[in-house]
Nucleic acid binder design. Structure first.
Length: 284
DNA sequence: CTATCTCCCTGGCGGC
DNA sequence: TGCCGCCAGGGAGATA
């Protein structure tokens, strides 16, 4: 379940292909969340990878040509989303593909970017317009680690909302990149009950929650960065970060802070974990 | 405008 | 051992 830190670490792991020329694109299964465009290979073949960036949980790969003087000309953007179970590996050479290895991007130097996605919730799209104008990207909220995401902004956004705070901070229109795991973790760290109506959060609570979201993501990013080598193992099987959570997945286990047993509820069709002692309901 | 529900998909697990 | 049913979850899209 790639959350934002895994996506960012994946992007970092792919950075070494910047400048490489694409030799061949193989699509073994077109049926992801949306069909992979049938003409994707012809758009990519012979072009170079110019730049790899990220917006929310999307990885954007600028594709085009490089002049002799090093001036890039972008032909389009390869937009990737890992969905629930997607993984991108950078292989130093070709390995036989396994089940669920849906896409290979082979470079002239022999390296291969390989997409594996058993549940096929991921996406591979070709954009020729400005990416930020694309419908998938043009209504996204700020990046959680940007300065624009601060307590005042969040407080303003929550003012008109009555829905529980947990699904609200997972809403990409408010802020991107806070998935189910880090939503529960951040609320625990901010000592806010996940069912608290959004508009009841005070400005200090919003400031604290923003700080804890950033801290949670930074910590995961640091853990992921330090395990980058394992994440991009030579066998092409990146593992997930070795991480311990305060509350996520710890139903019935003692809270690491107070010892109270961790609760699970469902909010917005998602499992939600919290400690009733550390995260008391606010009095109305 | 906000809120809520459904759907896409397969691997893994519990129950029988 | 095998089969069935359920669940996990990101996020778009439909609906209220």
């Amino acid at each position: 379940m790639p959350e934002l830190p895994e996506v960012e670490v994946t992007r970092l792991g792919l950075l070494p292909v910047q400048g490489a020329r694409i030799r061949e694109v193989t699509i073994r299964h077109h049926g992801l969340r949306w069909p992979i465009p049938a003409d994707l290979p012809q758009h990519l073949q012979g072009q170079r990878v110019l730049q790899l960036t990220r917006r929310a949980k999307y990885i954007l790969i600028d594709i085009g040509e490089m002049s002799d003087t090093g001036v890039p000309t972008r032909k389009g953007v390869l937009l990737l989303h890992l969905g629930m179970s997607g993984r991108l590996c950078l292989l130093e050479r070709y390995f036989p593909h396994e089940k669920h290895d849906h896409v290979d991007i082979a470079f002239e130097d022999g390296r291969v970017i390989r997409l594996r996605d058993p549940r096929r919730f991921g996406a591979v799209l070709w954009l020729e317009q400005e990416p930020s104008q694309h419908p998938l990207l043009n209504s996204l909220g700020p990046e959680p680690l940007d300065d624009a995401f601060d307590g005042n902004y969040l407080h303003q956004q929550l003012k008109s909302r009555n829905a529980a705070i947990k699904p609200t901070i997972m809403d990409a229109h408010i802020v991107v990149g806070v998935g189910n795991i880090y939503a529960s973790e951040s609320l625990f760290r901010a000592r806010i009950h996940p069912e608290t109506p959004s508009r009841q959060l005070t400005l200090p609570q919003c400031q604290l929650l923003v700080a804890e979201i950033k801290a949670t993501l930074h910590a995961a990013l640091a853990a992921g960065g330090s395990s980058l080598r394992d994440f991009f193992g030579a066998d092409g099987n990146p593992g997930y970060f070795q991480q311990t959570y305060y509350v996520y997945g710890r139903t019935g286990l003692p809270c690491l802070v107070c010892g109270q047993l961790i609760n699970t509820i469902r909010l917005g069709q998602r499992s939600t974990f919290y400690c009733a002692t550390c995260q008391p309901r606010a009095f109305v």
